[in-house]
Amino acid sequence: MNRNQYDTDVSTWSPQGKLHQVEYAMESKKLFKVDDHIGIGVAGLTADARSLATYMRTECLNHRFQFNSPIITGRLVSDLADKHQARTQASWKRPYGVGLLVGGFDRDGPHLYQTCPSGNLYEYKAMAIGSRAQSAKTYMEKHLASIESADLETLVIHALKALEGPANDKDVSMENASVSVLGKGQPFQILEGDDLKPFLDQMGR
């Protein structure tokens, strides 16, 4: 299902200097529910992301079956990172071609993790991944203080603005953005299309 010979892998450059797989990924759904208290955003091979999402969902269901409680996000992402790592040192396997941002809400509050194909795992207060992540990171770094103390509504607007970023030429819109939220008393939910209107209105977009 390839559109040309340069889109078979995330790390294959086309002569025009494009990473086709990364761009395809931009077009498809990038937010997945894992459980009521965990969601992921992905950048890279969407197929790999879907298989990892299925793994995470299964782990969550197994935990609920065994303990009747939500799994601890940190433990799940640690297992997830180990899964990534195992793919880096076997000659007959390839690494996962996808990076994940994992948001979770546990008994000790909210967490945000990033996984990498290498198996590295980091926890952040704010993070962006993907081909144009740098401008988002710059935005969030600048506004970190207000992000940390923001209520949900403000946080969504921050996310949209970070997505837009100073370097991006296109405004965010109901067509090209979706936002997921989760937290205390707020099960994972994806805001897209008309759901975003009030936020975009407030941003004057």
Binding site: Q66, N68, R107
Partner: peptide, 15 residues
């Protein structure tokens, strides 16, 4: 795991 979390009584009961 060493994250300082141990199972709650309810989790142990269910398990």
């Amino acid at each position: 795991v060493a994250d300082g979390i141990t199972h709650s009584p309810k989790e142990i009961w269910c398990c």
